[in-house]
Amino acid sequence: MAEPLSQPRSSSFLTLAGLALLVLGALGGWAFERQRMAGAVSGSGRAAMEKVVHDYLLTHPEILPEAMDRLRAKESQKQLAGIGSRLYEAYPGAIMGNPQGKVTLVAFSDFACTYCRQSEPALAALIAENPDLKVVIRHLPIIAPTSPVAAAMGLAAAEQGKYGAFHSAMFAAGRTDPASIEAAARLAGLDLARARTAAVQPKVQAELEANIGFARTLGINGTPVWIVGDQILQGAVGKDALAEAVATARKS
């Protein structure tokens, strides 16, 4: 599961319904075009062909999940292509795993996100098992009023080369109130005066705004979200799903 950005959880049914209609239309159009090219039907036969597809889907609804997964994959590829390489360019120091890794995983996260915190063991295991994995952290401070403050301090920690320690301390704390943020900063060994100055720099705010822009462009509506290769995985999907996506990206 994922904590929401702007789209309510109740919209998931409408999303699936919309995808089903898109699948139906796409399959009907494909079948009609194949038949038309073969000379089997005329333009007026499209409605009849779509009815055949409609009736088949009602009889065999089990094919819809696979079709919708493929449709989502194609949409993800289009969205990612529209952003290009910018998505994979980390804020200096906001990286986990191997900074020179050949495979890149982009993680949209919020220190106040319960599901992000629950995903930490999976992420740690994934990094340990994949020495060629580079994890680019993109803070999406959307959950709590203090999320932006915590995210800004995370980027300040990144500038001091101590992002990983601060990241672990924040999720271990489980809160993003000012006291927890300062305690995590001290535990990570930050120069607090320097970090406080860095956290309010325009480039930090620009980074957080850019992350929100990426999320909107990609249709991301909550955290955590994982992007690797041409796949977008939303929610606390677990290590196995992430490992499979990483392995697929490595082969491509």
Rank of each mutant, 00 (worst) to 15 (best):
G154I: 10
R175D: 03
K134S: 04
Y88L: 02
R72M: 11
T59G: 00
L71H: 07
A144L: 15
P131W: 12
V136I: 09
S119I: 08
K78M: 12
V103G: 03
K134Y: 05
A48P: 03
S85Y: 01
P61H: 05
P61T: 10
N130V: 07
G93D: 13
F171R: 05
P121I: 04
Q77P: 00
G174E: 11
P141D: 09
S85L: 05
Q77H: 07
A90M: 04
G164P: 05
A157P: 15
S42Y: 01
E62W: 06
V41D: 08
A73L: 14
M96C: 10
A165I: 00
A125G: 12
M49R: 15
H54W: 08
A183V: 03
I95M: 04
E89Q: 15
A151K: 02
Y91L: 03
G93N: 14
K162L: 01
T104Q: 03
M96P: 14
A158Y: 05
P61C: 07
T176M: 13
L87T: 00
A107K: 12
K162C: 02
A125L: 08
E120D: 12
S44W: 07
M170Y: 06
F171Q: 07
E66K: 12
A40S: 09
I143C: 11
I143A: 13
H60S: 10
Q160R: 10
F166W: 13
L87K: 03
Y56S: 13
A169W: 00
S180A: 15
V149N: 08
C116G: 06
R138S: 02
C113N: 00
H167R: 11
R70H: 13
L126A: 01
T114D: 12
V103Q: 06
I63R: 13
Y115H: 11
S76T: 03
G45Q: 15
A150V: 08
Q118A: 15
K78R: 15
A112T: 03
A128R: 15
I142W: 01
P131E: 13
L123Q: 02
K51I: 07
G45L: 13
Q118N: 11
Y115C: 10
E66R: 12
P148A: 09
P141E: 05
I142N: 05
S168Y: 00
S76Y: 04
G84D: 05
M96F: 09
E66G: 14
S180I: 02
D110C: 13
Y115F: 15
S109K: 02
A151C: 13
L71K: 03
E129G: 10
K74S: 14
L80H: 01
L105V: 02
A128S: 14
A173P: 10
V136Y: 01
A185L: 07
A81D: 02
V53D: 12
A158S: 13
A81P: 03
L58S: 07
V106L: 02
G154H: 11
K78V: 12
I63W: 06
I142P: 01
F171E: 01
E75D: 11
R117S: 06
G101C: 09
T59M: 06
P92G: 13
V41M: 09
P99W: 06
T104V: 14
A184D: 07
D177R: 02
F171V: 03
G97C: 11
R138G: 02
F166R: 06
P61D: 10
P178T: 02
Y88Q: 07
H167N: 08
V106R: 01
F171L: 12
M49D: 12
I63V: 15
P92S: 09
G43H: 10
G174M: 12
S85V: 06
Q160S: 13
N130S: 06
